[in-house]
Simulated scan of single mutants.
Amino acid sequence: MLRLGALGRFFGLMLGASMVPVWAQSGIYTCTDSRGRKITSDRPIIECIDREQKELNPSGTIRRTVDPSFTAHEQAEREELAKQRAAEEARVREERRRDRALLVRYPTIEVHVKERAEAIAQIDAVIAAAKKRTDELNQQKGQIDAEYEFYKKDPTKAPNSLKRQRDDNDRSRVIQAKFISDQDGEKARVNARFDEELVKLKELWGAQAAARAAAAAPAKK
Rank of each mutant, 00 (worst) to 15 (best):
D195G: 03
I120M: 10
Q84R: 10
R63K: 06
R100D: 08
D168E: 13
L13F: 13
T108K: 13
G27C: 13
A209F: 11
P155Q: 15
Q165D: 05
R93H: 04
Q139Y: 14
A90T: 09
F11V: 06
R166K: 14
K163E: 07
L102T: 02
L137R: 00
F11E: 12
C48T: 00
A207M: 03
F10P: 11
D50F: 12
A90Y: 02
Q183W: 04
L102S: 02
A192R: 15
Q143M: 06
S172L: 03
L81G: 09
S34L: 13
L4T: 12
V22T: 11
E74A: 07
D99R: 00
F179P: 00
K152G: 05
I180Y: 05
G8E: 06
P159C: 06
R171S: 08
F70C: 00
Q53T: 01
A188D: 12
Q122C: 14
I62Y: 02
M14R: 09
E147S: 09
Q208P: 01
I120S: 09
Q183D: 03
I120K: 11
I123L: 04
L7M: 12
H73V: 00
E77L: 14
A128P: 04
F179Q: 04
A217L: 05
V113C: 05
K221H: 07
G8K: 00
G36N: 08
R133I: 01
T71M: 06
A207N: 04
D154C: 13
D145T: 03
A210H: 08
I180R: 03
A86T: 12
A192S: 09
A210W: 04
E110H: 11
M14P: 02
L15M: 06
S172F: 02
F11C: 11
E118S: 15
R37I: 08
R100G: 03
R97V: 13
T61P: 00
N160P: 03
E149R: 07
E55Q: 10
D170A: 04
E196N: 15
I109H: 05
P107S: 15
L102K: 01
E94S: 13
A129T: 14
G8A: 01
A217T: 09
P218E: 07
E94M: 15
L4H: 02
A216D: 11
A125D: 03
V126I: 09
A146V: 01
F11D: 08
R64Y: 08
E94K: 15
V104M: 04
L162G: 09
G36I: 12
A215N: 02
M1A: 08
R100K: 13
D182Q: 12
R91P: 02
K153C: 11
I175D: 03
V22Q: 09
E197R: 14
T156K: 10
S59I: 10
R78D: 13
Y106K: 00
L56A: 10
F11A: 08
G16D: 11
T30N: 07
A177T: 14
W23I: 07
K221E: 12
Q53P: 00
D135F: 04
K54H: 10
T71Q: 03
R78M: 09
A146T: 05
E196H: 15
C31H: 01
A101P: 00
Y106R: 01
A192V: 06
A17Y: 06
D135N: 07
N191V: 14
D135E: 08
F11Y: 12
L102F: 02
D33V: 04
R43I: 12
D167Y: 12
G142E: 04
D154W: 13
P68H: 01
S181K: 07
V66C: 14
R193Q: 02
R171M: 06
A76T: 09
